[in-house]
Simulated scan of single mutants.
Amino acid sequence: MGARMDVVQAARGWLGTPYRHQASVRGAGTDCLGLLRGVWRELYGAEPEAVPAYSMDWSEPQGEERMWAAARRHLSEAPRDGLEPGNVLLFRMRAGAVAKHVGIVAGTGTRPSFVHAYSGRGVLESPLSEPWLKRVVARFEFPLEVL
């Protein structure tokens, strides 16, 4: 199994985990960032930096792109066009808001999908439909050379 599929397998291991704001414990609770953090720990060990407490609005009042900045520090930027299994997608949930949702591409081709933690739903694999694709503002990759 290739490195990209290792990312997908790790993400799918979180399916069914309930949604819990600021949590990152497989099977017990997580939010979308917690899912990404948990996959990182499974693949690499310790997280690259401590995550400060954050509110549900994700710095929207200040207009700060905190999640985007953190992704740039620890992941490799990838072109926005095209999808590869294991890509990390950053979403802007509404126009003018900060990017504050993240998911991991699981399926590509004619039935693209992504794994994410969604408030009220938990961790699920969702179709990467046109409404979701329109919200993608950046695409990243885990540092695959060290997997």
Rank of each mutant, 00 (worst) to 15 (best):
A71S: 08
Y44G: 02
E65T: 04
R73G: 05
Q62D: 06
F91K: 02
G45V: 04
P127H: 00
L83C: 07
F91R: 02
E60Q: 06
G63P: 01
A99L: 00
W132V: 05
L90K: 01
L90H: 03
M67N: 00
A71N: 08
G82R: 04
G122S: 08
G86I: 10
E84S: 12
R94S: 06
W68G: 14
M67K: 04
L83A: 03
V123T: 08
G82Q: 12
A46K: 06
G45T: 04
S59D: 11
M67G: 02
P85E: 03
A97R: 01
F140Q: 00
V123L: 15
T108P: 08
A69Q: 15
K100G: 06
A95E: 10
P131V: 06
V105W: 13
G109D: 12
Y44S: 09
R80Q: 15
R121T: 13
L90N: 05
E77H: 07
S126P: 07
H116W: 07
V88H: 05
D57F: 03
E65M: 13
W68M: 10
E125Q: 07
V39R: 01
R72K: 06
W58I: 07
A106L: 03
S113K: 02
S113D: 04
Y118S: 14
V105M: 14
L83F: 12
K134L: 10
P79Y: 08
A50V: 01
L90R: 00
V98G: 04
L89I: 13
A46L: 00
M93L: 12
P52T: 08
A95P: 00
R72Y: 03
P85T: 00
R72S: 10
P48N: 07
E130A: 05
A99D: 02
S76K: 15
G82N: 03
L43H: 06
L89V: 06
A69Y: 10
E42Y: 04
P127D: 09
W58C: 05
G86V: 03
E130T: 05
R139S: 09
K100N: 10
V137Y: 02
P112N: 03
S55T: 12
A70R: 15
G38V: 03
